[in-house]
Design a protein around this nucleic acid. Structure first.
Lengths: 334, 334
DNA sequence: TTGTATGCGTTATCAC
DNA sequence: GTGATAACGCATACAA
């Protein structure tokens, strides 16, 4: 079967292309009669709109790009999935770009997305502040950032979980359940979210009259997993009274748990543990892992809504949306 | 800054648009001198190709669609990630469509992808055989299937893990390590991969002179997790000699493990357990979970290569590529 | 209410 | 080697 164009439809229906276009987009005026006629022909022929042409003409692509560091990560995957769904419902298709945390790939993707003329951009996480130089095109591509601080806040909307709150509450939970020497375990990274979580931890200590001292309360883990056992062992040797750990993410928490299991440190009786992200794996460990759950649904809804607002030029810029997190208590803090 | 078009470049460089196009695409003839001149102007202006126009003109979109049931599933996420990477390297961008296992959404996505004029399609998993009616357009969109049987094999290339081999080896491992009464645990589903895995299990029994009897060797689990405990309890009550379970996927295996833990069935000493998929979670359970790992890298490489072959009309159709799996042995089968 | 004509940015065909 | 120009399929300003 041939691919019908608007022209063919016009010819068959005995009207002009303009009329067909008007009927299709329900835009402009036409009689009920011609409407029916045109629609019938479209039905009969199985006409399908050529979006490429439409995009060219309208200078709009009805597609938006998502920059994400690693889509096989559960949190990211969930957010992306929900974003994709909301956006599809609004008529947008989604180009997902897996940057693998490489700045070079990120730039390559941005070039590609610009060339494709995406209508908007969603930037999820990533180490350094996001900067997008959309001088170089007259059409400023609007973007929103999730969990990644934009360099120029005035240009965008920043959506983030309340990492501070999560860390604060997690730490308080440790203390409430009897921990006298709580510790935060983290990599030596400086993403905004990590900083916020550290701050929350510190403030929870302060509130409970514990003076934060790095070598007593901060367990820094090497980026290389292979060094974890050493890191942990030497820290515990120096700090034998540790009885609670707030791990800055579940991945680290799971590693810690495995370590403790191996070295016969009983969790939670000797030492309580709480993570961040509420990964699936935490539900299957022994003991099951307490964690801080980010509200991915809310995050993605806000992001989609905010971006569409910017695209339609009806949303306010320079905003920051903070999404609350919830504590999920399981066996590791009993 | 304005968005320069090929026309502007031509004007500035003092040549015709045709020449600029030739230089950009390195296609046709032009002097070295004009090449330099044009390239310089492009550099200076920051000209960026408008792919929408190019696509319209060439009737090619350099984008391909991926249909996937659930991207937050680790196996799928990994495959998608690797596909996206290979395809991007070849100059294609990827539109990922999360069908949520809904046939309706699948159809909606297919319509959208057709409208966008994707050059190809990758279909991952899903319950029923995949059928894509590309009559309705003159441009047959080529597609490959991963782990999902195509209805019309002649149209496509089918890539799949060797589920049979995985199930066979997993079962043999149970028997080899001493199980006398191995069982397969699965939902009552009829996807091709499930059938293959069941077949592998049965054949392994046969090879070891065990006669497969449904009510003795097949633990059917309800789709609703809430019913799992009942399902398991009643099956074990009827079959108290069970000492090994091959679970058709890790998700089920994890649930089983949790159940056994709760009911003081010691794994692996009383009962050995092996899953399928090698999910991350299996590395953190107690005991750690043995599993069958699918080679996602190989799968996605084959899929990308096969699809690009079809797009460039140089690949043979009607093929089936079987990717071997590997047994990952951990504590649950010790 | 409808039709005609133009242009979106590109590639490709032809002529020079 | 290079340039003029016709498409690609659509939306829209303007005319009728």
């Amino acid at each position: 079967m041939k691919n019908y164009s608007i022209k063919d439809i016009a010819a068959i229906a005995g009207v002009s292309v303009a009329t067909v276009s008007r009927v299709i987009n329900d835009n402009g005026r036409f009689s009920e009669e011609t409407r029916k006629k045109v629609l019938q022909v479209i039905e009969d022929t199985g006409y399908k709109m050529n979006y490429t042409a439409k995009n060219l003409r309208m200078n709009k692509s009805f597609s938006i790009g998502i920059l994400v560091p690693d889509i096989s990560n559960y949190f990211f995957a969930t957010v992306v999935q929900q974003l994709e769904e909301s956006l599809f419902d609004k008529g947008y298709s989604t180009i997902i770009c897996n940057t693998s945390r490489s700045l070079e790939k990120e730039r390559a993707y941005l070039r590609m997305l610009e060339g494709k003329g995406v209508d908007g951009l969603i930037v999820i996480s990533g180490a350094e502040a996001f900067e997008f130089d959309s001088s170089g095109s007259d059409k400023k591509i609007p973007y929103v950032c999730i969990d990644r601080e934009p360099k120029i806040k005035a240009d965008t909307i920043f959506i983030s979980s309340n990492h501070y709150q999560g860390a604060f509450e997690a730490t308080e939970e440790l203390i409430r359940s009897g921990c006298l020497h709580p510790v935060i375990a983290m990599h030596n990274q400086k993403s905004t979210s990590a900083k916020e979580r550290l701050k929350g931890f510190k403030d929870a200590l302060k509130k409970n009259n514990i003076v934060f001292v790095s070598h007593k309360h901060l367990l820094t883990l090497s980026l290389d997993e292979a060094h974890f056992p050493q890191n942990i062992a030497s820290f515990l040797a120096e700090n034998p009274t540790v009885d609670g750990i707030f791990s800055i993410n579940d991945l680290i928490a799971l590693q810690l748990l495995a370590y403790f299991q191996k070295h016969d440190v009983s969790v939670p009786s000797q030492l309580k543990l709480i993570g961040f992200d509420d990964t699936i794996s935490g539900q299957y460990t022994t003991p099951t892992l307490s964690s801080v759950r980010q509200n991915t649904t809310l995050i993605s809804e806000h992001a989609a809504e905010a971006l569409l607002g910017l695209i339609n030029k009806e949303g306010a810029l320079n905003r920051e949306i903070m999404v609350p997190v919830t504590l999920v208590l399981r066996e590791s803090t009993r």
